[in-house]
Each structure stands twice: as structure tokens, then as C-alpha cells.
Design a protein around this nucleic acid. Structure first.
Length: 660
DNA sequence: CCTGACTCA
DNA sequence: CATTTGAGTCAGG
């Protein structure tokens, strides 16, 4: 009997105390009334267990809407015991549970945190997407091991308790929670062995420490300018209905502009078919298709989609939110990158948007034409006709990174993100990180010369090496573009077909460019071939941090991408531990990570000292790759970036020096 | 190539 | 009828 009641509490907590005394490591899982610890959700009960899953498991119910809850003084007693005696917590997606427990007074930061889902990621096949507890249990131990989950979910649903688990009685939810604890413990022990056996101890240690750093970032959150959110919500809604009305007018009827099927009907009504097909052969109404339709309706639909997306993804979730807390997953990707959820703060638009259509000068039209062809070529499309003025005009809503806060017709999503009082947001951005890591895999004299040039344009250097041209050549820009496409194509593992689309040439021609590139970029071909050969033979490779990738030999080319992206990711994770350690006794904090950059809040009193030190910490690395980090101050918001400069305090200036 | 959020069907 | 699922689209790297 280990659904704890008021009557058995003393005996149960004594039993718990004695197992912690023997081994101060505890598996933990909380049940809650929702998924948002920083909004109104709370725990309704706490499950604990030994890592030996045949040992003790208990469920302490506190806030169920039916059945027997423990009195609140008992919650205090339990938390006190944990704070005093436990050294390590083990959990499945552990940060989630800890955010809730933190609010109940649990000491998190002085403990060792072990997230089993992170361990599972290190061992699973790279193609495995669903790492949730029950699918993982099923993969490892079969259907029987997770039957309890299926059964309980059925009960919860039939009673309509599935939206809010605290509606269920402790007898139902407690048993369920205990079984989750047991399954977590079993996975922990098994995966610990697997990680040791595959010699991934180092990368696991990195991930284990990273878990706490991410936890701190999530808890800190980032401040939102709620006034600005309200302001642009209104502006965008108004603009959206203007656009909507014009779409209805042009198409002669009202319809759901979000529905591709209905867009198809409207276009066929005015005798237009899409120049692009979906993989299934239907008419596509994607951006790449709409761009090629010389009709104002196409431009307005693009605009409508963008405005809708802004509202639903980037504005509504922020309304009335003073501080936004994301969740970083260090188990979400097959390469080892982080991902960010609810909300995703790693895909906030960089560019601003213009809400007012204006007539364009010839210069502006040409600017837009080149913007369109750039957009189109990166998506592998070609532009097959010139657009008339009324269509071109619909493009005036596309902005760039130069947000102007005084222009009331511009809106920027990054403008929502502001520093706390007495802080500045400072961005630290690796320049060409993945290219540098790629080159580091086949370092030789030629490559080292490029890597050590400092702030260099890699694509130009690659063009020079591969095609024997220099800046004086008339066609240098084309060659540079080709080199850039091949570098990224190789890193991403695209084929000649897709490469030829990006280069706007035939696959055969693309193959020729690629051959030239590999010959000029000494060592790159050997590296590429070696990766493909290894994956094809034995089905796995390891990156520079020892992270193992199990890859389907039919897609062996993916290996290069995994190595480059994964090594970059692990390198940044490793540096984040150093930065976190450095900031421990400071007022400043890391807030976000966006794959090749971190964003920190730096206290005014530390603004001269900290940015250069973080820059140095990020540039150092155990792989000896020459890395360049740009430091930019984001003031007054994330929308505006200015290169960092030391601010000189007047009393430190030596006025006796004659600068003339 | 690697993601996550939203919408429709 | 409510809920889940896959595809399509688009934001970031």
C-alpha cells in the first residue's frame, strides 16, 4: 500500500527516509492539473521511487478534487525531507516536474539532475521521433509494459478527467504515477549500462550538466513588452481585414483564405492554374507557387497568410504575458541540437513587416525583384515571368532586419522581447559556425589558412579555391553563390537535383560544379566519402564529442549533416556550461539559445566586464577550432542590434593625453 | 538537411 | 459528435 493517506503518512515517510539514507538518489514524477507551471497549474500529487524498480514506490496526493488528500503540513514535511537528504533526482522529462516542485519549495539547483529521456535520445536510432515514456517503454519491453498507460488513459477519458488529471481520485492517478516511476527507473538502469557500453559517458555528462543550465534559463524567462503586443495586435488585425476584404472583392465571393482547397477553386474560377504541383500531383498554393502567379490575388493571399501566422503564432500567445518561459529540449533532435517548445523561441522572425502598401519607385521595384528571386532560388524555384506593378506592390509588406521603431507602419515580433529593468539584452553570435566545424573535419594547410584569417567570407574563399577565380572576375558573384550552395548542400546532404535548382542549372552541370569544388576544397571529398562508407558498412558514426548516430545505410549521406550539426551543437552546449559557471556569482543570466547564438541579460553594473569575457569563453573550445563570436547589444529590444562597445566612464578618461 | 506551431481535411 | 492524424505551409538554424 503506497498511495499515502493521512493515516499511513508517518510510516510511509519514515520508510522513504530510510531508503534515501541508504542511497540518496530518487526517481520522481509529479501529476498536475495542467502543463503550465508558470501560469495557473499546480501539482496534485508527487510520485517517488528507488532507482531499483523492485524497491519502494509511493504516491503522495495533495490537491485531488476527489478522494483523500494529505494535509498541507505533510507537503512541507515531504519537501523538507527531500531537500535535506536527496542528492540526485531521476525523472522522465525531469525539468517539467522540477518547475512544478520548485514552486512547492523544492531545492533544485543544489542537486544532481538526471533526465532519462536525454539518455534515451543518446541510444535510440536517429530516425526514432517519439521519445515519450510509453512509446519508449513499448519499444524496450513490449506492449505489456505499457498496458497500464492505455488502460488508465481510457478511464481518464471516459470520466472526462483527461483535461485535468486532478479531477481523478488518488487511487486511480496514484497507481498510474507509480507505474510511470517504475518504468522510468527501469529505463534509467538499462540505459545507463547502454551509454557506458557505447562509450558515450562524456557526452552524457555534458547533457546531464546542461539539463540544469536549461532549467535555469527556462525558469528565468524573458520579459515581454505587453503594451507593444496589444498595440500590434490591433494594427495587424486591422490590416488583416483590409487584405481580406480586397481578396473577397477580387475573387467575387467570400471564402476561407486559409484553405488551400478553396484557394484552388477561386483561382480556377478566374482561369488560373498553379505552375507548381504538390508531391501528390495536386496544384500547390505554396509561396513558391503564388510567387509565380502574376495576379494581385496571389500577392494578397501571401500577405494574408503571413498576417494570420503573425497573429496566431507570434502575438496571441504573448498577450498579457509579462515574462515568457519556454521549454528547451535537449532530447528533441537526432543531431544533438536543442529545440524549443511552448512557445518555440528559436524561430522568431528576424525581419520586420510593413503594414501599409505604398507605390514604388523604379529603384524599389528592382530591389523587390531581386528580393523575390533570392526568396525563390533558395526554395529551389525559378521565376518565370515578370510581375505587373499591382502585384509587385503587394511585396512592399516584406521587411528586413532594419526595424525602425519610429515608423508606425512597421511591426517587429522581436520588438516584443525586452530586457528587465536595469538589464540589457546582449546577443553572442558565432559567425559561420557550421562551416568552420565542417572544415575542421578535414583540416590541412589550405583549410587552416582560411580558418585562421579571422573575419573572412568563407563562400568567397571557397569560390576562389574551387573555381580559381577572384574578386576581379566579372562572374565572381555567381561563383560565390555556387560555392555557398555546394557548401550548404554538402553539409545538409542534398543531391544534384536539388543543388541544380538552387544553382539554376541542370543536374549534370551541378555535378560538374560539385566535382570542381571537392577538388579545390582539399580533403572535403575524402571526408565525405569516408562518412558515407562507414555508415554503409556498420550503420553508425560518432561526432567529435562521442555522440553516436545510428543511421539507415540507405541514407548514409545524412551522416555528414549529423556530424557537422551535432558537433556544432555539442560545442555550444559545452561552452554554455562554461558561461553558466562564469555567471554563477554575477547578476547576469543566459536567457536563450538559438543554435549558433546565445542571448543573455547583462546587468548595467556588469555591462563593461561581462560581454568580452563571455565572448572569450565562447571562442575557446576543446576541439581547437578557430571560432569568431560577434557581440551585439539589443537595445531597447531584440529587434535592434548594435555591435558591443565598451562604454567609457568619464572619470576613468585620462584628459591629460593629447589625442590631436 | 534539422526543428515546432498552426491550419485544414 | 468529438478527437486524433497526416499533410501542407512557413518561421528559424
Amino acid at each position: 500500500m503506497s498511495i499515502v493517506t493521512n493515516e499511513t503518512f508517518q510510516r510511509d515517510i519514515d520508510a522513504l527516509r530510510s531508503v534515501i539514507e541508504v542511497e540518496p538518489i530518487l526517481v520522481i514524477d509529479v501529476e498536475t492539473n495542467g502543463l503550465e507551471p508558470y501560469k495557473n497549474n499546480q501539482i496534485c500529487g508527487i510520485g517517488v521511487g528507488q532507482t531499483d524498480y523492485l524497491g519502494l514506490t509511493q504516491y503522495y496526493p495533495f490537491r485531488h478534487h476527489q478522494g483523500e488528500n494529505l494535509s498541507s503540513d505533510k507537503l512541507t514535511l515531504l519537501i523538507d525531507l527531500l531537500n535535506k537528504s536527496v542528492k540526485s533526482y531521476v525523472g522522465y522529462n525531469l525539468k517539467f516536474d522540477l518547475h512544478f516542485l520548485d514552486r512547492e519549495g523544492l531545492d533544485v539547483l543544489s542537486k544532481e539532475l538526471i533526465d532519462v529521456i536525454v539518455m534515451v535520445r543518446l541510444m535510440e536510432h536517429s530516425d526514432t521521433k517519439d521519445l515519450a515514456l510509453t512509446p519508449t517503454g513499448k519499444r524496450n519491453y513490449g506492449e505489456g509494459a505499457i498496458q497500464y498507460d492505455i488502460d488508465t488513459k481510457k478511464v481518464l477519458r471516459s470520466n472526462k478527467w483527461n483535461k485535468d488529471f486532478s479531477m481523478a481520485p488518488p487511487t486511480v492517478l496514484g497507481e498510474y504515477c507509480k507505474k510511470d516511476v517504475i518504468l522510468t527507473a527501469r529505463l534509467y538502469l538499462d540505459y545507463l549500462k547502454k551509454i557506458i557500453k557505447t562509450k558515450q559517458g562524456r557526452v552524457f555528462e555534458l547533457e546531464r550538466q546542461l539539463t540544469k543550465v536549461l532549467y535555469k534559463m527556462e525558469k528565468q524567462g524573458i520579459s515581454i513588452d505587453t503594451d507593444y503586443a496589444q498595440q500590434i495586435e490591433k494594427l495587424i488585425t486591422n490590416r488583416l481585414s483590409e487584405v481580406e476584404q480586397e481578396i473577397y472583392k477580387l475573387s467575387g465571393k467570400e471564402f476561407n483564405v486559409s484553405s488551400p482547397a478553396q484557394i484552388g477553386e477561386v483561382f480556377s474560377g478566374i482561369g488560373i492554374e498553379s505552375p507548381v504541383k504538390t508531391p501528390k500531383g495536386q496544384d500547390s498554393w505554396s509561396e513558391a507557387a503564388l510567387v509565380n502567379i502574376n495576379h494581385r490575388l496571389a500577392g494578397l493571399i501571401r500577405q494574408y497568410r503571413t498576417l494570420e501566422k503573425l497573429l496566431s503564432t507570434y502575438i496571441e500567445p504573448y498577450m498579457g504575458t509579462e515574462v515568457m518561459h519556454t521549454s528547451f529540449c535537449n532530447w528533441g533532435t537526432s543531431t544533438g541540437r536543442l529545440s524549443s517548445r511552448s512557445p518555440n523561441l528559436q524561430n522568431i522572425p528576424r525581419n520586420h513587416f510593413n503594414l501599409k502598401e505604398r507605390s514604388l519607385s523604379e529603384d524599389e521595384k528592382n530591389e523587390i525583384r531581386s528580393k523575390i528571386s533570392a526568396t525563390v532560388s533558395t526554395k529551389g524555384m525559378s521565376l518565370n515571368q515578370d510581375l505587373s506593378d499591382d502585384v509587385l506592390k503587394t511585396w512592399s509588406f516584406v521587411g528586413d532586419e532594419s526595424y525602425d521603431s519610429t515608423n508606425i507602419n512597421q511591426v517587429s515580433i522581436r520588438r516584443l522581447f525586452i530586457p528587465r529593468k536595469n538589464y540589457s539584452l546582449v546577443g553572442f553570435d558565432y559567425s559561420q559556425m557550421e562551416v568552420r566545424v565542417f572544415m575542421s573535419y578535414f583540416r590541412n594547410k589550405t583549410i587552416d589558412e582560411i580558418l585562421n584569417k579571422g573575419d573572412v567570407d568563407f563562400h568567397s574563399e571557397a569560390a576562389k579555391l574551387a573555381f580559381g577565380v577572384d574578386e576581379s572576375s566579372e562572374r565572381f558573384k555567381e561563383y560565390r553563390q555556387a560555392a555557398k550552395a555546394i557548401t550548404f548542400g554538402t553539409i545538409y546532404g542534398i543531391g544534384n537535383n536539388k543543388l541544380s535548382q538552387q544553382l539554376n542549372t541542370t543536374p549534370k552541370e551541378a555535378g560538374k560544379y560539385k566535382k570542381q569544388y571537392f577538388e579545390g576544397m582539399k580533403g572535403s571529398k575524402d571526408f565525405f566519402d569516408e562518412v558515407v562508407r562507414t555508415v554503409a558498412i556498420r550503420g553508425w558514426i560518432k561526432n567529435r564529442y562521442g555522440r553516436k548516430y545510428r543511421i539507415n545505410p540507405d541514407f548514409a549521406y545524412k551522416g555528414v549533416n549529423y556530424l557537422v550539426q551535432g558537433t556544432s551543437a555539442d560545442l555550444l552546449s559545452e561552452r554554455m556550461l562554461k558561461v553558466d559557471n562564469y555567471l554563477e556569482d554575477k547578476k547576469s543570466n543566459i536567457l536563450l539559445q538559438v543554435h549558433d547564438e546565445i542571448i543573455c541579460e547583462v546587468h548595467d553594473s556588469e555591462l563593461n566586464e561581462i560581454p568580452p569575457n563571455i565572448q572569450n569563453l565562447l571562442q575557446e573550445n576543446s576541439l581547437g577550432i578557430p571560432l569568431e563570436v560577434d557581440v551585439e547589444v539589443c537595445n531597447p529590444s531584440w529587434a535592434t542590434k548594435v555591435p558591443f562597445e565598451l562604454s567609457i566612464e568619464e572619470d576613468k578618461i585620462d584628459w591629460t593625453i593629447d589625442w590631436s
